[in-house]
């Protein structure tokens, strides 16, 4: 259990800090971000999360319609990034594991209700089809 907790905190900590660094890098030095996507490089098609960086940058600039147009996943990604940064920071400072408990209970809940997961994945798939139709 202790190893599992460390694994989850390490993965989400690295993911959050990596996303923040990537976002700040692109905010200060705007450029083409498509080169980073392995899926895009391999197939020539956008992946489900292609355009999320640009979308989040548009949200930061206040251009919500452009952000919506680029990739709608930018909105949940932006909210998730803020929540994760605050939550992981709180757990790190207070030496508690509230995030891990919430993560485990929500994962178990999703496993018990596969319809919710199927709906989430369907939404992502529909968004992906739109992305391919727009930029593919």
């Amino acid at each position: 259990m202790k190893g599992e907790k460390f694994r989850i905190y390490a993965i989400f900590g690295l993911l959050t800090s990596g996303s923040l660094i990537w976002l700040i890098w692109n905010f200060l030095l705007p450029g083409d971000t498509a080169f980073i996507c392995m899926f895009h490089q391999a197939t020539g098609l956008p992946c489900p999360s292609c355009g999320t960086t640009t979308s989040v940058l548009q949200i930061l600039n206040g251009n919500f319609s452009d952000a919506f147009d680029k990739n709608i996943l930018g909105f949940p990604a932006f909210i998730a990034l803020i929540i994760l940064t605050c939550w992981l920071g709180f757990d790190f400072i207070s030496r508690r594991s509230t995030f891990f408990s919430a993560y485990q209970s929500s994962e178990n809940w999703i496993k018990k209700h596969p319809v919710v997961l199927a709906m989430m994945l369907s939404c992502i798939a529909v968004n992906w089809i739109f992305l391919i139709a727009k930029h593919g």
């Binding site: 993965i11 989400f12 690295l14 993911l15 990596g18 996303s19 990537w22 980073i36 996507c37 392995m38 899926f39 992946c47 489900p48 999360s49 292609c50 999320t52 996943l73 949940p76 990604a77 998730a80 989430m120 992502i124």
Partner: peptide
């Protein structure tokens, strides 16, 4: 879900 929404952690993950 995290891996899907981050495109495999920008490929690194």
């Amino acid at each position: 879900i995290a891996k899907l929404l981050t495109c495999g952690g920008l490929g690194i993950w």
